[in-house]
Each structure stands twice: as C-alpha cells, then as structure tokens.
Nucleic acid binder design. Structure first.
Ligand code: ZN
Ligand code: ZN
Ligand code: ZN
Ligand code: ZN
Lengths: 163, 163
DNA sequence: AATGTAATGTTATAATATAACAAATTTATC
DNA sequence: GATAAATTTGTTATATTATAACATTACATT
C-alpha cells in the first residue's frame, strides 16, 4: 500500500525531530521568497515554536513562550503571525481543538485530513485523493460548490493502541 | 441517484418549516423517553430555538433569546442544555463555526457530514456510507482507531449558485 | 532624506466556554 | 406523606479564544 497520501505520519517519540524542524523552516523560506512575502523574525519564530513538536499548539501557549523570550507580548502579535502562516499554507488550524500544527507539505497549498490521537496528542496529516474524491463527488451530486473542507478524525494512533 | 444519505437537505426559504420543528420535537420526546432522560422545559425550549431555522445557532444568541423570555440567564444555563442535547444526539456542533444545528435523524446516534453554505448560511446534513467507508478504511490502513469524526464542507449551495 | 507601505506594539474588548458552589426541583425510599 | 438522595437549575466568577482600533516602528521606493 503506497501511502504518498500521508504528508506527515505519526512519529516515534525518539525520531530525529531536528530534521523535521529544519526542513519545515527551509521550505518556509523558499515558499515565502517565491511568494514575495516576508518571513520576519517574529513569524519565523512562531513557526519554529509550532514545529517544536508534532502536537497541535494553542495560540496562548505560543504567546506565553514569546513573552518569555521578550518577543511580542499581546494576543494580536501571535494571531497576526498565525494568520500569516495560515495564508501562506505553512500551518493548519485544527478546528476541533482550536490549535495549530505545521503543514507537512507547505510547497503547495492544499486541504488536508487530520488524524488526532487522543492519547498521545500527536497529529498525522494526509491529503488522500480517495477521500477528496468521494467528498467532491458527493458535494457535486448535490449541486454544492466546495470552497473549503474541515476533516478531522479523532481516535487512537497505532502506538497508543499497542500500549 | 438515491440520496438516503442526506438526512437534512438544503431547504427552500418558503418550505413548511413548522413541520420540521414539530417532527424534531416529537422525535426528541420519544428519544428521551426511550433513553430514560428528562427533556425539561428549559432543554426543550433550547431545542426549539435551535430548530428555529436550518441555520447554525450560536450559544450566546440562544442565551439572549432565553433572557428575553426570562428563562435562564447565564452561560451555564445554555451550555448545559447544549451538552445535554449533544449527548442525546438531538443536535450537532459545527466546529468550524462554533455553532449548533438540530440533528436531522436523532433516532439513532451517528456521525454526520455537513455542507455549510457561506452565502445563505444554511446547513445540510448527510450520513453518507461512501464517505464513512473511505475514511474508516484509510484510518484502519494506518492502524488508527476512529473515535469521532469532524467533517464540514464549506461552500455554496445550489440555490445560492443559481443566484 | 522624504514618502508610502507593511509590520509590530499597545490597549481595550468581544466571543466562546467552564469551574465552583448554592438553591430548587424531582425521584426514590422509608 | 415525610425524608433522603439525586438531578437540574441558578448564580457568581473566571478561563479561554479571538478581534478592533489606533499608535509606533521598520522597511521599501523614490
Ligand atoms: Zn519530527
Ligand atoms: Zn497516540
Ligand atoms: Zn425546515
Ligand atoms: Zn446557500
């Protein structure tokens, strides 16, 4: 079973996360250069903080961390950065958690489907053509024009089931 | 194409909504009787207010209406009723809107997929086996145990496209 | 350097939701 | 029916998530 559709799988706790972080930042730099937008130090730092793990991060937790570092200080600081990163497709918002995760494939804009583990809190990101197709077909058959999709599956990841 | 999977389609503005409301309340009474739980006047009224239309309703709008009627008065009043109605499967929460809609098929608990029109604000509810299956299969192929699904498609309904 | 635009700072407030405890109501038991 | 237990609702306070409005700073263009 080819799983190209999994953009960001569940990760082992001891995986080399530094490379996830570096890859994400490299891609963000490229992405912003080619879009002609500015990945300022603040925006870059917010992205780094979000990529601190594969768990969704809350806006006010980001704010606390920024305050510790004497960067920014008020909600608009972090929400503006989040808006920027969302618009550039560098992060996603999980509507069912009011939290944010780094995008596993930021080079092209796309919609995703998320698997959210209720035990370990990690998130996996997919962009599965079969899922997209069945939803698109269904909407089309009802004369509905799709503009955006929110698809978030909550449950238990393989490792947490294994115990 | 048989569309049993559509539990609550988009409705014409001039449809006989009274019958939607009565059906929903009748089913709620039956549902609660068979579950041995109490559909108190407050809970019943909140359900009625939610069924005032096919548009999602916000918690604080419900609270304002209850205050006008001198029923309840504080956030916990409405949130408790919402929790009750959610647990009984009589309403659903739309995570992408922080708003609530009546369930189109409350006699059995189920997950749904929602189509949300950004123009008219109406919501259609589906429980489509093809959608459920493709998601379940995908999750299963990744060793993920599904506990809950959030599937909300935003776009334009047929009538709004027609203009 | 002067000007215009974009980004960030700052203060205040809006919108959504829950905690904790008291009072009232309903149900169960004697 | 009186009493006790459990459920529901009331009440006050607070937590959490997000935006509005306007001032200041940094950057880019001329
Ligand atoms: Zn990693
Ligand atoms: Zn897990
Ligand atoms: Zn109706
Ligand atoms: Zn519409």
């Amino acid at each position: 079973m080819a799983n190209d559709s999994v953009l960001m799988p569940f990760k082992d706790r001891d995986h080399a996360h530094q490379s996830c972080l570096e890859k994400a930042l490299d891609q963000a730099v490229k992405n912003c250069e080619s879009s002609g937008v500015r990945l300022t130090p603040l925006r870059r730092r917010v992205l780094e903080l979000i990529w601190g793990s594969h768990m969704p991060v809350k806006a006010y937790d980001l704010l606390d961390q920024l305050r510790d570092e004497k960067i920014g200080s008020a909600p608009p600081t972090v929400y503006r950065s989040l808006d920027f990163l969302l618009e550039e497709g560098l992060i996603h918002k999980l509507q069912s958690l009011n939290a944010y995760v780094g995008c596993g494939e930021p080079l092209k804009h796309h919609t995703s489907q998320f698997l959210i583990c209720r035990d370990c809190g990690e998130v996996a990101e997919m962009d599965d053509p079969d899922i997209q197709q069945v939803l698109s077909r269904k909407a089309e058959s009802l004369g509905f024009q799709v503009l955006d999709k929110t698809i978030e599956i909550q449950g238990l990841c393989e490792k947490c089931i294994a115990g």
